[in-house]
């Protein structure tokens, strides 16, 4: 880690910061949609790490993994939003604690 030259460390630290931010959002927020968005933030951080490794190791596989992650993330967002909308239809709210009603 030096200041005047970009190293893999710069990108990986940034990726770690973003991942932890996303984690904070998932654990501390109560709104389902915000939690889903925090998950997207975490996936973004992972993508950044993948591309960083791909670039610094001269390996193309990292970029392919990013494409897979993006496709799965898009699918996950669609399902998550559908669940959020059906929850909203039923309870007129988006609080995560509403899932307690689903037991049984």
């Amino acid at each position: 880690m030096s200041v005047d030259v970009l190293t893999a460390g710069h990108y990986l630290i940034l990726s770690a910061i973003l991942f932890c931010l996303g984690l904070t959002g998932v654990l501390l927020r109560r709104n389902i949609i915000v939690m889903l968005m925090s998950i997207e933030l975490m996936l973004n951080a992972v993508n950044l790490a993948f591309v960083t490794f791909s670039y610094f190791n001269q390996n193309i596989d990292g970029q392919i993994m990013v494409l897979f992650v993006m496709a799965v993330a898009a699918a996950e967002a669609a399902v998550g939003l559908a669940i959020a909308v059906s929850l909203y239809k039923k309870f007129k709210d988006l609080n995560i604690s509403l899932f307690e009603h689903l037991r049984g």
């Binding site: 880690m1 970009l6 190293t7 893999a8 460390g9 990986l12 770690a16 991942f19 984690l23 610094f56």
Partner: peptide, 21 residues
């Protein structure tokens, strides 16, 4: 704890010092 863990792993891995190509 998780943040500390991730930072430690990142900082101690050998790839960190690799300069940009």
């Amino acid at each position: 704890i998780f943040s500390g863990l991730v930072s430690a792993v990142v900082l101690r891995s050998p790839i960190v010092a690799k300069p940009a190509l």
